[in-house]
Amino acid sequence: MPSPRRLDRALQLASAAAAAAALLLLLGLAAFLLRESAPALREVGLVRLVGDRGWHPTRGAFGMAPLVAASGAVALGALTLALPLALAVAFVRLAYAPPRLAALLRALLQLLAAVPSVVLGFFGLVTVVPLLLAIEPPGASLLAGMVVLALMVLPTLALLIEGALAGLPSGERAAAAALGLARTTVLLHLALPRARGAIGAALLVALGRALGETMAVVLVTGNVVQWPSALLAPVRTLTANLALELPYASGLHRSALFVAGLLLLGATAALLLIASRCGARERWRGAREESARA
């Protein structure tokens, strides 16, 4: 058995090495994406990657704008659907539901958060898409993607919003109770204004997750490369495009796909950093911790 000091030293070295490795992970991630996307950046160029008419990489058209627009539309739409629902669940849990039901709701949210995204996507494919098909073919569409993604970000968003709303200082809560204010009044007029920053940050991180999601989207959006023009028209997102084309892509095509990956990396990292700047200490991980605590 080594002496305690030798062990301490070894531990210190090993942990510093592990920390360096973890740091290198991000650098390596960015470096490899850059390296692989270099040919496309060099030979196609940013201008064409944005401005080419449409995405037909085998025919030399590398315009990613419709893909980016579709990604943005699906993600923003999902948040628009999810925010009111998340607020509703948070209100019910904080103010209206009896404790037992509130605990049950929480368990349900945790279950929902644990559902693999490919299962959510599949659920969307067999239920949401046929429903929309009945309204207007083909059913697999922008709206279907929004609904499925909303379902995906909802549980964590609800838990985060609840955490932000519950963060009312106990003194203020007592004062409100002493004034005989109704719970709804307290939530709407005291807690909600105070939680605006935190909710904003939660939305930003949720946006990052929605933008980066692949499986839940690719199964339900129809995957036609076009500008998102109607809710019931099919679209193809950046992520879906990667999932569909990378397995067979080569040369500049493959390289251009890595540019898309770089774009996704940059967008999610930027969203996360802005969110943490927003001053919300509780982030996605806060919610994860929160849900682990229950």
Binding site: L23, E36, G208, G212, T214, L246, L264, L272, W284, R285
Partner: peptide
């Protein structure tokens, strides 16, 4: 270094999984 690492971990933890797929493939 620890502060930087915490921030980097937050960022890497939020990277979409398909991007990890690209990275792993390369």
């Amino acid at each position: 270094l620890a502060a930087a690492l915490r921030r980097v971990l937050d960022v890497v933890g939020s990277v979409p999984s398909i991007v990890f797929g690209l990275f792993g493939n390369a």
